[in-house]
Structures are given as structure tokens and as C-alpha cells.
Design a protein around this nucleic acid. Sequence first.
DNA 1: CGCAACATGTAAGCGGTTACATGATTAC
DNA 2: GTAATCATGTAACCGCTTACATGTTGCG
Lengths: 180, 180
Amino acid sequence: MDVKTVCLGMLTEGEASGYDLKKEFESSFSHFFAAGYGSIYPALASLAEQGLVTCECIPQTGKPDRKVYRITVAGRRFLAEALENPSPCHKLRSEFLATLCFAHLMKPEDIETVLDNRLAEIEEYKKFFKDLEDGDLQCMHAGTKFVVGFGKAMMAATEAFIAENRHTLIEADDRKSATA
Amino acid sequence: MDVKTVCLGMLTEGEASGYDLKKEFESSFSHFFAAGYGSIYPALASLAEQGLVTCECIPQTGKPDRKVYRITVAGRRFLAEALENPSPCHKLRSEFLATLCFAHLMKPEDIETVLDNRLAEIEEYKKFFKDLEDGDLQCMHAGTKFVVGFGKAMMAATEAFIAENRHTLIEADDRKSATA
DNA sequence: CGCAACATGTAAGCGGTTACATGATTAC
DNA sequence: GTAATCATGTAACCGCTTACATGTTGCG
């Protein structure tokens, strides 16, 4: 499941341009699947070449032609097969956690900053999820609702964990040497 | 914070070979930072070239020389600076969630399989965290404990969320057409 | 007046994954 | 006997990120 396949999936909701898909990546997908123009545009070109989508060029004045993509029957078939993967991966890459592994080498105020910045990011996500749900809850698919709910649950769990455990990083005996 | 920096951090715990570090990546780091030999060996070579670690070759019979790396003073300085990043990133890449976004295009039994496989992976992580804690809780740094606790909290939250919400994916009205 | 939104794309580069190459020892 | 553990490394590849290139319209 790469950027190409996700684009294909998004196109099952209706026609869209690369620009439109980027916005989709920035909204409901932002917390678990990032993609920039540099991935999206080549992905769409490649999908078109494989016949999985069609492309209609709509001339515009002043702007580059708007290219509207639509999924084809072959595209739906391809997507269905991709969705049959029984164990799609779920991978975290966290420099945040890696940093905290070495908290005993950090200044206490730096630890606090790292923690507070993470909490601030979570706060933004929470707002953002709220907006999503306020917006078009009823027109969201069950899958999208599930995924947004999942994001909310993770953010809540993270917040709670940090609140309950941040003191262990600051008060730790192992800051200079084992005092045990 | 790339593989190189994490290796450097691991070496603050004492000397180690690339092989040793790989085991470390597979244990306490496995749930948030993956690295294979193809990343680790070049990383160590590069660190040595920069003078951030020293390398001692220990000849062995039958096996390639064991190369033992130790962090240098310059290495500690470099690491300290890297740890000053106030907003280390925390990025999820989930084909699991991407797949479920398109649950309405999947067969119910395939949805169940995807969910059950994820739960099985979580079960493994939980066992694995338990082993970690049983093993050497008292010799673990506060940071490592925090990070393992974080992993446990995420796994628990994920399990609970799936248990409470899986039915919404199967029973959804939007499977064929909106029945609303 | 300036910034944000609209709109597409390329090219270089980077970091990481995967596969390959080698081979002894030890435990089941 | 055969699988796992020990032990290191290279090379090709792949996907994604970042920076660059271009230009209008409309809002505050």
C-alpha cells in the first residue's frame, strides 16, 4: 500500500486533481499517511500510464491546466486486490521516543520542552479531529470514522501517558549515576 | 535523529558491535524505530570516520573479526547537541489504517482478518514488553522504562479501540450504497 | 501591497530496505 | 542433519522529501 494505491482509493470517492488529493492527505490521512506533491503527481502519472485512472485536462486561464483523474474498472480491480493484503503494516518512526530513551543525558528543562511540544502537537490534532467530525460526520464512511476515532484514541492515550509519567523522567535517579 | 544518532546513543551504555546494536533495535526499540544491518553497519563506519566512535577489531576464528565500537568525547558532544532538538518528529505510517479507510470496498471476512492480524501483532508486542520488564527492570534507565510504558499504553489503547469499534466497520450501511 | 490559494510538475538527493555473499559453531 | 546464532559487509534499488520553476486570482 503505497502512495499510488492510496490515491486510487481516494479516487473511488469521485474525480479529483492532484491538488485535491493533497488536501485529502492533509486532512483525514494526515495522522497516519503523509504524502507531498513530489509523491502524488508522479503517482497519478504512473496510474494513468497503467490504465488504472483516466486523466482529463481542463484548460484554465492563468493557471496550469487542471487535470482531473477518474478511477477505471481496472483501477477498481487493482485496488480490491491491494485491499486483500491480510496484514497491512503499521509502522511508527519516532525520534520523540528515541530522544526520551536518552533522557538521562538531557537537561531537565530540555526534557520538559520536548514533552510540552509533543503535547502541543497533540492538542492541534485534537482540534483538527473535532473540526473533521463537526464538518461532515454523516457523509463520512464508516472506515474514515473508524480511522479518525483511532487517531483520537491514540492522542488521548498519549496525553494521559505523558501526564502520568513525565515526572519519572525528571526525578530519575539515573541522571548522573545510579543512586540505588 | 537518524540511525547514526541512535547508534551513538546506544553506545553510551557501553561498547558494542553492529551485531549487538541490531539486537538492541530488535528489543526495546522495535516498536518505534526499525533498523537493519544495511543501515547499522554503514552508520557505524560513518561514525568512526567522523571520529564520533572508535573501532577495535577483535580477530576471531571462523567468524569475521568482531568490531567493537566505543563512543568518544566528540561523540558525546555530538549526541548532546542532537538531543537538544525541541520537537523530534513522531511519525506513523499505517497501511493498516489506510486499508480500513476503504473498508466499504472490502469483504467483511477480509476486514475481520485484517483486524485480527493486527490484534495478534499487538499480543506479541505485549508478551515482548512483559519479557523486557521481567528481565531487567531495575537496570533499565528511566527513559527506557518510559518508552516501554508508552508502547504498552498504545497497544492497550489500540486493543480497546478495535474491540469497541470493529462492529462499525462490518455493520456499516455504506457497504453497497447509502441506506440512510 | 502582500499573502494565501490555486495548479502542475521536475530533478537531485537521501535514507533505508532487500538481497546477496561467506562461513564456523552450537544446540536440538 | 538442520536450524539458529554469531558476525560483517556491499550493492542495487526504491520510495519519498526537498527544493526549484512558474504564474494568476482574490482577499484583507
